[in-house]
């Protein structure tokens, strides 16, 4: 094979190879894109379904999936489960105070409210085992929180949020039980 023949061939074949490779790449790219789009659709559906499952069958959600139902259901009448502290270390408060408003305790933000909500829900449904479990979870949040013994009550409070915020109006308060948490020990009900 002489040099000129080789150059001639290269001139003819290389563009063809380039074109074929480009065509193959494009074809692979198209197939790959289709695969990814399908895969994405399936993942999006699966996440939504699992998140929805967590929201419906509520507690616990399947970590790390989340239902993302945040500030979605405004309440005209808000049923709020609260813990009111009656006495701390034997000293009775002038009137029962919401635990999350007492400065001497560490607080746990929205999480605390969620535990209380679940506790209240199990009380409503008469599920004593679940109620005890949630009570223990709640008490454990506070057990190291600067008091030896705290007498408290679980209350269901009904109110219109706007009216309550403006005028302090509460529609009703129902006491569901009185309990005591003791520092570093799990008292049984």
């Amino acid at each position: 094979m002489n040099a000129s023949h080789s150059r001639k061939n290269r001139g003819a074949i290389l563009p063809l190879i380039r074109a074929t490779t480009r065509e193959k790449e494009l074809d692979m790219g198209r197939k790959n894109n289709r695969f990814k789009a399908g895969f994405a659709a399936i993942l999006v559906s699966a996440y939504t379904l699992v998140g929805g499952y967590g929201a419906s069958f509520n507690f616990p959600e399947i970590f790390p999936f989340f239902n993302w139902a945040l500030f979605s259901f405004p309440a005209k009448i808000y049923n709020e489960w609260v813990v009111q502290v009656i006495a701390i270390d034997g000293d009775r408060l002038s009137e029962p105070a919401d635990v999350h408003l007492i400065d001497r305790f560490d607080h746990f933000g929205a999480g605390e409210g969620k535990v209380l909500r679940e506790w209240g829900k199990s009380v409503e449904q008469g599920d004593l085992e679940a109620a005890q479990a949630h009570r223990s979870l709640f008490e454990n949040l506070y057990r190291r929180s600067g008091a030896e013994q705290v007498r408290y009550r679980l209350v269901l409070r009904r109110s219109n949020p706007v009216q309550r915020w403006e005028h302090g109006t509460v529609l009703s308060e129902t006491v569901e039980g009185e309990f005591t948490w003791v520092k570093d020990s799990g008292e049984q009900p």
């Binding site: 405004p74 309440a75 005209k76 999350h100 949020p161 309550r164 915020w165």
Partner: peptide, 27 residues
């Protein structure tokens, strides 16, 4: 709304109810 205690999220006062409920919870 799921029940009589709820307000539609598209009601004009929906945000006011959501905000005041949250402020009530946090104090």
């Amino acid at each position: 709304p799921m029940n009589a205690d709820k307000l539609s999220s598209v009601a004009p006062e929906a945000l006011a109810h959501l905000v005041t409920k949250q402020l009530m919870i946090s104090g």
